[in-house]
């Protein structure tokens, strides 16, 4: 009976837990940003603002749903869904502890990368369907950035794959029971830096946020969205960044390994993912926006060759160690 029910219930549980975490991650970011800027942040709703995300959600649900007259209606209405679904699929393959997850695929990392790259289709539908110059410009800028930073992201994520010798996420986590890959001499640290930089870029956050640059494009591709559709886009965006944080924690920080009994594993994993998330947020609130050409140059001239070389070096080290019998 349990075998029959688990595949049905596990996705529902994971979906709700993820949405819950995503909602509270927004509060974490606002509090963290406020702290960095010597502000207090959300404070009024509940104790120290703990109920703020719920108030936000209720507000967004009650808001009027405004659809621009000139919008391409089917595309405009479908875009938030197309944007959200791949971001939620990310969590289908994540193991939260040994044997705890929806589906531990053999090609876990590849599935993650493939699904998260589909997000751009929804972004484009939003940008084009809104029939708004700012939204369209934002979508055009997204192409530059997403195509440029997909490759460094994939390469830096492949380095732990080569070190662990498996594409399966649980195998990669298990391979770090002795030494977390971030502590792997030289390779680990460089790969982690490359991963963080390309994550920040892939999530379109400052200093790489030209596609939503509020001073020139207002809010970019989602400028025409309001109410629940806006909420879905925000949810998708934060789910994506949370997924990338979990991936970073799994690839480099040893996933669920940590002191204490085994059932603490998922909590350790969550803490590590939150650390990666705060690192990305820290970068976001510390740097100013850079120009398009600087963004492209950083990717094609520095990050891409560097990660490619690092991947080759990792392969050489792994083969050499295997031959030396280490």
């Amino acid at each position: 009976m349990l075998e029959l029910v688990t595949p049905l219930i596990a996705p529902i549980v994971v979906l709700h837990v993820v949405i819950g975490i995503v909602t509270y991650v927004t509060l974490l970011e606002r509090k963290f940003a406020a702290r960095m800027q010597s502000r207090i942040g959300p404070y009024r709703v509940g104790y120290h603002g703990v109920l703020q995300p719920i108030a936000d959600a209720v507000k967004l649900m009650m808001k009027e749903d405004v659809v621009p007259t000139a919008a391409d209606k089917p595309v405009y209405n479908l875009a938030p869904i197309v944007f959200l679904v791949p971001c939620m699929f990310i969590f289908a393959t994540l193991p939260f502890a040994p044997g705890l997850g929806v589906a531990d695929l053999n090609i876990g990392v590849l599935f993650f990368l493939a699904v998260s790259s589909m997000e751009i289709v929804g972004l484009f539908m939003a940008g084009w369907g809104s029939n708004n110059k700012y939204a369209l410009l934002s979508a055009m800028r997204a192409v530059n950035q997403v195509i440029s930073y997909d490759l460094p992201f994939v390469f830096s994520a492949l380095i732990p794959v080569v070190l662990a010798g498996s594409l399966k996420l649980s195998d990669i986590a298990a391979a770090q029971s002795g030494l977390w890959f971030i502590f792997y001499p030289v390779i680990g640290q460089l790969a982690f830096i490359a991963f963080i930089v390309s994550t920040v870029a892939a999530e379109n956050r400052a200093p790489f946020d030209i596609l939503e640059a509020e001073s020139e494009l207002v809010a970019g591709f989602r400028v025409e969205y309001s109410g629940m559709k806006f909420a879905l886009i925000q949810l998708g965006e934060y789910a994506h960044i949370l997924g990338a944080s979990f991936l970073g924690a799994l690839l480099f920080l040893g996933a669920w390994s940590g002191p204490g009994p085994e059932w603490l594993g998922p909590i350790w994993f969550l803490i590590k993912a939150m650390l990666v998330f705060l690192l990305v947020t820290w970068v976001r609130w510390s740097f100013v926006r850079i120009r398009v050409d600087q963004i492209l140059a950083l990717s094609w001239k520095a990050l891409l060759p560097a990660t490619l070389l690092l991947l080759l070096a990792t392969a050489v080290v792994v083969v050499w160690r295997a031959n030396a019998g280490l």
Binding site: I107, L110, L113, A114, S117, M118, I120, V121
Partner: peptide, 10 residues
């Protein structure tokens, strides 16, 4: 399937 999605999304 994964490669199909990864390549064709781009």
């Amino acid at each position: 399937a994964a490669v199909q999605l990864l390549l064709y999304a781009g």
